[in-house]
């Protein structure tokens, strides 16, 4: 069974009274444990595709099946429940809640599920990303790399089946990027999560098993990568 299946996905926006189609009939499917990247130039539609796949937006036509759940049939609140159940996120600008400590940020997905022992789980995840002693620091008290590691811990907190990462190293320097990426793939391997990575960094994309290239909203290539870490 595919963990993510995208069928004939099209997205159109109204812009200045005109229709602007940013995705044209995209199709692909992913198996559990796959690592997958979407690459393409700015404005090619890759972030739109990620948003649709993660259930953050709804398509103009076509369907997205996440763990066999057809997302476009669900309301926004129902999609939120699906995200909490099956999906983890990593963003280019980290998207940590500035008023919460690192530990509290990691606890949110667990608390939303009503899980007991959220604090313990979150603490062990922070230790796993090397920030065990920084749990009570606020995001502004952490460096960019540390914030992204907190974000990694939060993404894996609810043991997601799918992890979406949008330009995860876009705001980091080269050294920090390498550390974060190593950690991301390591955690992903340990958890057996399917990873969907949006990037314009071809070297990073090459670390995944499969790369699709988008241009002008259309998939122009879909390549299996021979070597992956």
């Amino acid at each position: 069974m595919s963990i993510l299946r995208v069928e004939n996905l099209t997205k159109t926006y109204q812009s200045g009274g005109r229709e602007l189609t940013v995705l044209h009939g995209v199709n692909f499917s992913l198996e559990p444990g796959d690592t997958f990247s979407i690459v393409g130039p700015s404005g090619s539609g890759k972030t739109t595709l990620l948003g649709l796949c993660a259930g953050l937006d709804h398509a103009s036509s076509g369907s997205v099946y996440l763990n066999d759940i057809q997302l476009d049939k669900l309301s926004e609140d129902e999609r939120a429940a699906v995200r909490n159940q099956y999906v983890g996120f990593i963003f280019q600008n980290f998207q940590l809640l500035p008023t919460l400590t690192a530990l509290e940020n990691v606890m949110i997905p667990l608390e939303l599920r009503g899980e007991k022992g959220a604090q313990k789980t979150a603490q062990s995840l922070l230790e796993r990303v090397g920030l065990g002693s920084r749990g009570h620091h606020y995001p502004t008290q952490l460096s960019g790399g540390e914030q992204q590691r907190v974000s990694l811990a939060r993404a894996f907190a609810n043991r997601p089946k799918l992890l979406f990462a949008d330009e995860p190293t876009g705001n980091l320097d080269t050294d920090t990027s390498a550390t974060v990426i190593d950690l991301l793939f390591e955690l992903n391997r340990e958890a057996g999560t399917t990873l969907v990575l949006v990037t314009h960094d071809l070297d990073l994309a090459a670390k995944t098993q499969r790369v699709i290239r988008i241009k002008g909203g259309t998939v122009v290539s879909d390549t299996q990568v021979a070597t992956s870490i």
């Binding site: 953050l56 926004e76 609140d77 939120a80 429940a81 995200r83 909490n84 159940q85 996120f89 998207q95 940590l96 809640l97 500035p98 008023t99 949110i108 997905p109 939303l112 599920r113 939060r154 609810n158």
Partner: peptide, 12 residues
């Protein structure tokens, strides 16, 4: 902050 919470699965 609300958008982040919604992304992580909080209902409206």
């Amino acid at each position: 902050s609300v958008a982040i919470l919604r992304t992580l699965g909080a209902s409206g």
